[in-house]
Design a protein around this nucleic acid. Structure first.
Length: 417
RNA sequence: CGGGGUGUAGCGCAGUUGGCUAGCGCGCAGCGUUCGGGACGCUGAGGUCGCAGGUUCAAAUCCUGUCACCCCGACCA
């Protein structure tokens, strides 16, 4: 992608209506644009990041046999009345409105009420179980207060997986597999997520949250430093300084962002929708369910909260919008010729390159480069060409390495880029 | 929903005891010189001062209402 043609621009001054690090940097660097409080447009750079996160989610969901579907966001009142959630908490969290003929609609804020009757249509026998379906879709929640940029929005991207089982043992086995898939996912996105026990609601002792510890988090977690105990303060009966029930170490407390949540629903929704299957003996049994959520947009915001420096975003390679930022300092004929050649070669080789071909001053280009945060940069300038080379480095603060122009492709391959 | 703050050019702001043609920086357009850390000169375009009423000879400025945005709190399957 040529930066001169890229839709969206960097902004020198921080927007006054954003205070969070993630929103400030993402807006300044041209990744997102705010439409209103809690609702953002993804510009080309931001959408590339979001799509990479979605790709990783898909890979991890497929790894635990999740099959992707796409359910509507526009849903009828009927489904929600079956579980009572049209009123509680629907009146609070759901955007509800009337269509023609006074019919009531709501925008989906979770999809148990949609997925359960859907799967019921196709699952009749123990032979059809287990099965897991997921979707990646925008959810809508009428939050009391949107805040913190991508971390709490009214419309946000969510991956929701639902699993269906013949009994609790099978659910539990799958549930444990999902934990590992989740940990893999977060690790691949550059987040060190910890599993934290949280309220399980009426039908289960615990659900499990995936929390990323950071000062900017909204949740409070009490945990053991040896990592064999962690609970959300909402349910934690231990106090800071108490002994860990597993190892005796002192309990600590920290702020964290909840980036995922898995929940053993058991038969709560299958009962509400009278969803049963026939077992080997021909008897009807309740289907046992689990649900598993990840917020890709919140992951994106969290990554920025954690991976940035005073100059801008520092994307993990796995979800960066581009791998390589190629820039020219001062556009002379010779410099442009070399840069164009490299751009063509790298692109042809499948390397994702943002090529800053703009005729801007050195300071502007280097600062934009720091702000956007692409993992590797290649600089072509009079200085480098004097040595028949280009400069290779990561952040500004990192050591520069000169690579001969003819060897760039080969060297990048050696570095596994 | 309670408390606090802010709305003036695309962005960031000044101007508010009522008074001249509403200003500055950035950005944008043109020309020229620059360019390894947000360059410089000259020229130029760009405004319903959030919106609606009201007071007044006169309102960005005072009054009333309203909308939006930010922060804190309540809330968060």
């Amino acid at each position: 992608m040529r930066q001169s043609k890229l839709f969206g621009k960097t902004i020198k001054e921080a927007p006054k209506d954003e205070l969070s690090v993630n929103a400030t940097l993402l807006v300044r660097a041209g990744f997102i644009d705010k439409l209103m409080s809690g609702v953002y447009t993804y510009l080309p750079l931001g959408l590339r990041v979001l799509n990479k996160i979605k790709t990783i989610v898909r890979e991890e969901m497929e790894a635990i046999d999740g099959q992707e579907i796409l359910m509507p966001a526009l849903t009828p009142k009927d489904n929600w009345e079956k579980t009572g959630r049209w009123t509680d908490p629907g009146k609070e969290v759901m955007f509800q409105f009337k269509g023609r003929s006074d019919k009531d609609f709501g925008l989906g804020w979770t999809h148990e009420e949609i997925v359960t009757p859907l799967v019921k249509k196709f699952v009749k026998s123990y032979k059809d179980l287990p099965v897991a379906v997921y979707q990646i879709q925008d959810k809508f929640r009428n939050e009391p207060r949107a805040k913190s940029g991508l971390l709490r929005g009214l419309e946000f991207c969510m991956k929701d997986l639902y699993s269906f089982h013949r009994d609790e043992a099978d659910l539990n086995e799958y549930y444990e597999k999902s934990k590992q898939a989740y940990l893999n996912f977060f690790q691949r996105c550059g987040l060190d997520a910890k599993i934290v026990e949280a309220s399980g609601g009426a039908f289960s002792k615990f659900s499990h949250e995936f929390q990323v510890f950071t000062e900017y988090g909204e949740d409070l977690v009490r945990y053991c430093p040896k990592e064999d105990f962690a609970q959300n303060v909402e349910i934690c009966e231990l106090k800071v300084g108490d002994k860990c029930p597993n190892c005796g170490a002192g309990i600590l407390e920290g702020k964290a962002i909840e980036v995922g949540n898995i929940f053993p629903l058991k038969t709560k929704y299958s009962k509400a929708f009278d969803f049963k299957f026939k077992d080997e003996s021909g008897n009807d049994q309740d289907v046992v369910m689990g649900c598993y959520g990840i917020g890709p947009s919140r992951v994106m915001g969290s990554v920025v909260e954690i991976h940035h420096d005073d100059k801008g975003i520092v994307w993990p390679e796995s979800i960066a919008p581009f791998k390589v930022h190629l820039l020219t300092l001062k556009n002379s004929d010779k410099i442009t010729e070399v840069a164009e050649k490299l751009y063509a070669l790298l692109t042809k080789d499948g390397v994702e390159v943002l090529y800053d071909d703009r005729d801007e001053s050195t300071g502007v280009k280097l600062n934009d480069c720091d702000l956007i945060g692409i993992p590797y940069r290649l600089i072509v300038s009079e200085k480098t060409l004097a040595a028949d080379s280009v400069e290779f480095k990561k952040r500004s603060s990192d050591k520069a390495e000169l690579i001969k122009v003819d060897e760039v492709i080969e060297k990048l391959k050696q570095k596994n880029i």
